[in-house]
């Protein structure tokens, strides 16, 4: 099948140079504090393990609402992200919190299953109360050149989502080249993704700055052409305040202020929140803070 979406080519070295330059931005004082709080507010607090239990999910949901009660004025995270079978638990735990529930679906993380199963899983997630669905694309089909298959699948899942927002995971670590990342981004965006997301967190490398930059540029091109905004979620491997700020700088300088909200940007991360709190704790107490004072849920 012929791919009719014309994606621009990507020069990897050029992307890396741009990223390196963005990373030299020095974010200090007020900008740093506000940036860290914003980053906190953009987190999809995530547990996606085979050993997830009701207890674990409940603990995480409590943490999501009480990041560090000793530091005033902290926002909550944006959402928690769990497997389909834990959506109900999360829903109950987060009632009235304003925190969204995201569920992975479509045979996460491999995506190897039938379309029927994937649609059913998606519907189940939404029926159980998921506000957002994080699907994975079929990388095998993509790498075989079956781009229309990938496109149709995303569109079908989008339809199954109903009112829930759809995040499309490209699993960039398996796509090999930035040209492929761009192509997959364009397919997902055109097929109806509300968000495009880098990774499942199960494959290395997960989110990287260069990959995210390429995806942000795909979003920008789509926005410039149609006026439609699409969100971005780098996921996996972002664990420090410093790197979260780097991502925000990149977001700001690529897509601008309109995207600087958790409606359009998320971090898929499990340990990032605590590192941010570590930094905010330092600001509050005027001395370098310790993990001993921060809950580990």
């Amino acid at each position: 099948m012929v791919l009719l979406i014309q994606s621009p080519t990507i020069d990897q070295v050029g992307v890396e140079e741009r990223v390196a330059r963005l990373m030299t931005r020095s974010i200090k004082k007020e900008s740093e504090l506000e940036g860290l709080k914003l980053a906190l507010n953009m987190i999809d607090l995530t547990t996606l393990e085979g050993k997830d239990t009701v207890g674990k999910v409940k603990q995480m949901c409590y943490k999501a609402q009480h990041l560090a009660d000793d530091i005033a004025g902290l926002p909550t995270v944006a959402a928690v992200c769990v497997y389909v079978n834990h959506v109900k638990t999360a829903k109950r735990a987060l009632v009235n919190s304003g925190i969204k529930i995201a569920s992975v679906a479509t045979a996460f993380p491999s995506g190897n299953s039938s379309r029927k199963v994937k649609i059913e899983e998606t519907k189940m997630a939404v029926a159980n109360g998921a506000d957002e669905v994080d699907m994975v694309i079929s990388r095998g089909e993509f790498l075989q050149g079956n781009y229309n298959f990938v496109f149709d699948e995303i569109a079908a899942i989008k339809e199954a989502c109903g009112p829930a927002r759809l995040k499309v995971i490209l699993e960039t670590g398996e796509l090999s080249t930035l040209d492929n990342v761009r192509k997959a981004s364009d397919i997902a965006i055109h097929a109806g993704a509300d968000f495009i997301k880098t990774s499942t967190g199960k494959i290395q490398p997960a989110a990287t700055m260069p990959v995210t930059l390429v995806m942000l540029q795909a979003i920008k091109d789509h926005y410039d052409a149609t006026g439609i905004m699409v969100g971005m979620k780098p996921a996996g491997g972002i664990s420090t305040s410093k790197s979260a700020l780097n991502y925000l700088v990149m977001l700001y300088e690529t897509l601008g202020e309109k995207w600087m909200t958790n409606e359009w940007f998320r971090f898929g991360a499990s340990s990032l929140a605590n590192d941010i709190i570590l930094q905010l704790g330092k600001e509050k107490y005027g001395a370098y803070y310790s993990n001993n004072y921060i809950s580990k849920d």
């Binding site: 020095s26 974010i27 506000e34 926002p75 304003g98 925190i99 300088e253 409606e263």
Partner: peptide, 18 residues
Amino acid sequence: QITKMSKIKKTFASYDAA
């Protein structure tokens, strides 16, 4: 918009002096 941030006072529109 969820858990709306208090309007970011100083966005990255102008980074603080470094």
